[in-house]
């Protein structure tokens, strides 16, 4: 249980305390990753099924390693090799997987709401690993963890999120978590990529990169999805890179000396980030990857670790 929640579908419904519960636990989990034997027995005998209807290397591997470090068994079910290609519905796939008695189902789907739909129909805990343009909660939590680790706290910090805000589930999860921890969020990107009314989620909107990143403590650079390039939203990558991409020169002139740069990966080098920034001293992109494992360990531990309310009652009875 993460606070009152048996599932992790998004960060929108999580309170500040519930987010901090995961982040604090992730600190202890990160220590496990630095040990000579990177394995603890806490989730022995538990099953984690990774159900991925969209390609993913980083997130799926991260959940898989997190499960393994906690001694849970994990199984990967990817759409390309599954019966989905033979016409099976999402619910039928999930029911069949559920018959194998998993404790946690980690789901990625191109349709917003798919994990929520599954959570209402299966008996185990469901964790969203990203759904459509809705949320990517574990990424939001690892962004919070990474910035908090660097500055000690998010209270009073300013975070700029730059890129295709409209289609970014990372941006949405960041927006539903950073402000709860006391950070101010600035959104920046081409006007065609910022949803109208997004200010109501507690962020300010900028169309000029310089005003967005000046004075910020952390800058989250989002990936420009190749499939959107050439459509009316962005004419071409050179124009995008010129106005909204970050290179070493802009970073040196505009950013605070201690500001850090995050990116959820995979990076389009030369588009949203130049290589000298991505590999430079401000980049915490590889810290994010390591922190991602720790945060996902915390999520799996909290959701699969206890017996859950129903079973706890049975045991004490």
């Amino acid at each position: 249980m993460i606070g009152r929640h048996r599932h992790l579908i998004g960060l929108e419904g999580l309170s500040r305390e519930e987010i901090l519960q995961v982040l604090d636990l992730a600190v202890s989990m990160k220590e496990v990753l630095s040990r000579p034997v990177k394995k603890v027995p806490s989730l022995r005998g538990k099953n984690v099924v990774n159900l991925f209807f969209e390609t993913s290397t980083r997130t799926r591997s991260s959940f898989e390693i997190a499960a393994k470090v906690l001694s849970a068994d994990s199984l990967n079910w990817t759409a390309a090799q599954s019966s989905t290609t033979k016409g099976e519905t999402l619910l039928d796939t999930a029911r069949n997987l559920e018959a194998m008695r998993p404790d946690v189902l980690v789901v990625r789907h191109s349709a917003s709401g798919a994990p929520n739909f599954l959570a209402r129909h299966v008996g185990c805990s469901v964790v969203s690993a990203g759904d459509g343009a809705h949320e990517h909660p574990s990424q939001g939590l690892l962004d919070c963890f990474t910035i908090r680790e660097r500055f000690g706290s998010l209270e009073g910090r300013t975070v700029a999120i730059v890129g295709d805000i409209s289609h970014s589930r990372v941006a949405r999860s960041d927006l539903h978590s950073l402000p709860k921890l006391g950070a101010k969020v600035r959104l920046c990107g081409p006007p065609t990529m910022i949803p109208l009314g997004i200010e109501r989620l507690g962020a300010t909107v900028h169309h000029d990169l310089r005003t967005a990143v000046e004075g910020a403590d952390a800058v989250v650079m989002l990936r420009i999805q190749h499939e959107r390039i050439g459509d009316p939203l962005i004419p071409n990558t050179r124009e995008y890179s010129k106005y909204w991409g970050l290179n070493a020169k802009k970073a040196a002139e505009w950013l605070k000396p201690e500001a850090v740069i995050l990116h959820p990966g995979p990076i389009n080098r030369g588009v949203e980030l130049s290589s000298d920034v991505a590999d430079g001293p401000r980049s915490v992109i590889l810290d994010q990857v390591q922190n991602g494992v720790a945060v996902r360990m915390a999520i799996l531990y909290l959701l699969a670790g206890g017996a859950g309310e129903d079973r706890a009652e049975k045991v004490s009875a």
């Binding site: 202890s28 603890v40 806490s42």
Partner: peptide, 23 residues
């Protein structure tokens, strides 16, 4: 040492126990 991750009664507890730092 914090032994929370090595407990043998996880499955019998309602909520997962708090894990403190090991150093």
């Amino acid at each position: 040492l914090d032994i929370a991750l090595y407990r043998d009664d996880l499955a019998e507890r309602g909520a997962a126990p708090v894990v403190g730092p090991t150093d």
